[in-house]
Design a protein around this nucleic acid. Structure first.
Lengths: 141, 141
DNA sequence: GCTACATGCTCTAGTGACTAGAGGAGCAAG
DNA sequence: CTTGCTCCTCTAGTCACTAGAGCATGTAGC
């Protein structure tokens, strides 16, 4: 017979922490698993795959709501995949936007740090730029 | 005599929303302002500058804790500015790291979206990659 | 002076996605 | 039998706000 997978095992194999697995169950992202005689959760291989899916999607920055939709899609492989594509695309656009704004930010932080002559706070470029947005390289962030 | 600055005015001029100003007061980032006879807050020019400082720092992604330190430094211009420089530097490193990981992520999302042939979910590249981390371009994110 | 209506006040609770801790039970090894 | 690990439930905390209820105050037009 197949070995039962404990929550700790499931955590190790999926890379999702134990309390997080319980949390996902609570919010209905993962079905309630069967229990042993001693009231402990035990999981199947499909649960591990589902958890790995969730984890990967979270790493890519998808929100729980989007993941919920993606999981519904995965459960029914006959659906057209436009929704999945749309979600991924929206995320891609978000990421591109975020990279642009982080690059602007990086330029500004570099200016601060380079401008700092390690003197007194009174003449510090870091404090100065923070106090006056007009001194930014790209004031439109 | 000087016109008294209401919280709404302060919000407009600093770019920090009214409830957020009250929140900053509550957590001790901004001193409790004087009140009018009718119990309304009124602010000084220095408060507006302090709020603008906070807002700018928040936009640059500094945490409230760091901002608290930066504000203490600003209040005493004779201190050496190493602490300020350290905070800005730490933030710069964070941002650089974040940009790197977002770029990896972008590559992966592009692969997903490009691979999608708009068929059924069963053969969808988006779902497939999410389900199997091994299919990633850079599996180490 | 009266009437709208905007703006202000306090207080509590909610957001997202977990994380931490208390207090207890089950289980395997030595 | 005891030690120590994993597991259970439940509540509350994190961060930086945001939303809403239920009032009080201030201002502009008539």
């Amino acid at each position: 017979m197949l070995k039962e997978i404990s929550i700790g095992e499931a955590a190790k194999r999926s890379g999702v922490k134990v309390p997080t697995i319980r949390y996902y169950e609570q919010i209905g992202l993962l079905a309630e698993p069967a229990r042993t005689d001693g009231n402990r959760r035990h999981y199947e291989e499909t649960d591990i795959r589902r958890l790995a899916f969730i984890r990967h999607a979270r790493e890519l920055g998808f929100e729980i709501g989007s993941i919920r939709t993606l999981l519904h899609l995965q459960d029914d492989p006959n659906q057209p995949c436009e929704t999945a594509d749309g979600i991924a695309n929206a995320r891609l656009i978000e990421v591109e936007q975020r990279i642009r704004s982080l690059n602007a930010l990086k330029a500004e932080l570099e200016l601060m740090v380079e401008g700092c002559r390690h003197g007194r706070v009174g003449e510090c470029r870091v404090i100065e730029i923070l106090a006056d947005h007009g001194k930014c390289v790209h004031p439109h962030h």
